[in-house]
Design a protein around this nucleic acid. Sequence first.
DNA 1: CTAGAACCTGACACGGGTGTCAGAATCAAG
DNA 2: CTTGATTCTGACACCCGTGTCAGGTTCTAG
Lengths: 118, 118
Amino acid sequence: MRIGELARRTGVSERSLRYYEKQGLLAAERTPGGHREYAEAAVDRVVRIQELFAAGLCSSKIVELLPCMRDGDGGPSAVATPKLVADLTAERARIDRMVTDLLRSRDTLDEVIDAARG
Amino acid sequence: MRIGELARRTGVSERSLRYYEKQGLLAAERTPGGHREYAEAAVDRVVRIQELFAAGLCSSKIVELLPCMRDGDGGPSAVATPKLVADLTAERARIDRMVTDLLRSRDTLDEVIDAARG
DNA sequence: CTAGAACCTGACACGGGTGTCAGAATCAAG
DNA sequence: CTTGATTCTGACACCCGTGTCAGGTTCTAG
């Protein structure tokens, strides 16, 4: 599929998809004229990338991580190095802290909302 | 206490504390010479502000929200307007989505970490 | 062949909380 | 009074994924 369709199906802008490619996050074939041509598995991959961005990982970390993930079209093509495992473990801890904070903030909002309703 | 101590006790930079004041998030008395003097309750408040920032709320929302929260030194001094309740409800939903995404990303990381360890 | 839709690259701007620096004033202790 | 630590204000820069515009090329249907 081409970039417009991929954008539509993932909800990610064309701008971002091109950015992902430049960062090495998302590969694409090219038509003779230079237009990007994506495989079906790109949809899953883009969704994953979005999730990881939302989780606060930066492009460079995701670049290392992606080949170690099992993708829509097959198993992982690499295993994480010890260095990467350490990094990911730290990211995992950060995510846990983030979740804790989010839940606390959600409780705060609930209190205010409930107080206004009651 | 003064700004240096508050920064030390909350782990938030002096720069940010001044920014919070300018945004109307954090009040401070002034010494005759113009130095900020914070009440003890400021510590709790700064922590709350940080949590809400981390939860993705912007200053202007937090400004509206703060007076409706029960603070370290007393009950809420205001009740949320219907408009604010609607906004906060939307924020709450956003937080829920964020938590869901974070947990999914955490699972992804766990998979990669486990694969490398196993 | 042609019109219009889709796509290309490159560049500039944004948001918004934070880092940092400069130059000046204040505070507290000797 | 003096000195050194602390604080003051204001301004500029950063991050980094994303929006957007410009000017040009490719694709596809009629």
